[in-house]
């Protein structure tokens, strides 16, 4: 296990060191201490390494991650795992707004709650939130799965494209063009797999599925109020 002290040795050195790890590295396990809410911790990684951040982080932790597994033993600020391509990011605490924003792939797990705009413009990432999510989550979400074991806030899935949303608890309100949809066997299978990979013991059968009504896909003046 390699250890890196952000407070003592600086952010640039941390990211340069982690980004330099190659596919066949032997140094696969890293521990990052004293993050103290710093921004851009462990961003742009591109190797199958395992990074544990011992404490809470600021904005954009694990941004644009590829391949790496990043675990945060604390809470994260805005934009955790933004634009993630692959790999896994696990947050033991809560996540601020924009969690998993525009993510293309990989798995983001939030053990606590995520605040507003969780999964905004997501493009293929899978996000599992053990707690609740805030308002405007999955706004303009294009692809991927957002799983919420708790409740969802206002305007869930507004202007949704083809992302799939699964919520176990209540939904305060649905956004424009987002509707409840039938849970078919293939959805239960996807959901069950995501829940088990995210370490949740929730049962897939207890969730409801939401998706795009596809009414806004081609402009119609009678829908103008929804724009």
């Amino acid at each position: 296990m390699q250890s890196y002290d952000v407070a003592a040795d600086g952010l640039r050195g941390l990211n340069a060191t982690l980004q330099a790890q190659k596919q066949e590295t032997n140094q696969t396990r890293w521990e990052v201490v004293n993050p103290k809410g710093s921004h851009a911790i462990a961003v742009g990684l591109d190797a199958p390494i395992d990074v544990t951040v011992k404490g809470s982080t600021g904005y954009y932790c694990a941004g644009m991650n590829k391949q790496a597994t990043v675990r945060v033993e604390g809470s994260v600020g805005p934009g955790v795992a933004e634009n993630m391509m692959s790999g896994t990011v696990i947050v033991d605490g809560d996540a601020s707004q924009y969690a998993g924003a525009t993510g293309h792939g990989g798995l983001l797990v939030i053990k606590g709650n995520a605040s507003s705009r969780c999964g905004i413009s997501m493009k293929g990432i899978d996000i599992v939130v053990h707690g609740n999510i805030g308002h405007m989550s999955a706004f303009m979400a294009q692809a991927g799965n957002l799983v919420v074991c708790g409740d969802a806030g206002d305007a869930l899935g507004d202007s949704l494209y083809e992302a799939k949303l699964f919520v176990r608890g209540s939904v305060k309100s649905l956004g424009a063009d987002c509707i409840e949809k039938e849970m078919r066997p293939e959805h239960l299978e996807t959901l069950g797999d995501l829940l088990s990979r995210a370490g949740s013991d929730a049962r897939a059968e207890d969730f409801r599925r939401y998706g795009s009504a596809r009414e806004l896909y081609n402009f119609d003046i009678d829908n103008a109020a929804a724009y």
Binding site: G37, H39, G58, Y59, S96
Partner: peptide, 8 residues
Amino acid sequence: SEYRALVD
């Protein structure tokens, strides 16, 4: 405004 402000 950020968690950073609270860490100490």
